[in-house]
Design a protein around this nucleic acid. Sequence first.
DNA 1: GTTGAGCGTT
Length: 133
Amino acid sequence: MSNIVRRSLLVHHSTIHLRFHSNLTPSSPNSNKLFVGGLSWAVDEKSLKDAFSSYGEVTEVRIMYDKDSGRSRGFGFINFSKGDDAKTAKEAMDGKALLGRPLRISFALEKVRGGPVVVPRISGVGDVTRLNN
DNA sequence: GTTGAGCGTT
């Protein structure tokens, strides 16, 4: 009888270990940067800074605007001087409404340009003999 | 004139 050809999945899963920041749930006040979402399209940096500067010293407030329309994308970033204040502001303003729209605050992911980019080193794939050494 | 979850440039 015909034998069911077993799919030889001997390809393992390679040894690609994608290491993220090992923190998929940024609930740690280790970062002083807060991600603010759910912002109204009428909210500006001044309003945010004015609303968050009351909980701590805001050193940086950045709202992402669209390059086509020039309207705010509805999210921004707030940089506090202390992570503790950021956590306080987060726990304090998260869920609250600003300009008629509820805010969604969470710790921002450190997007660093030219940061520690983890290069997946593929090993055991073909006869790749040290192409990257 | 609109829309509605998300993660950004100097």
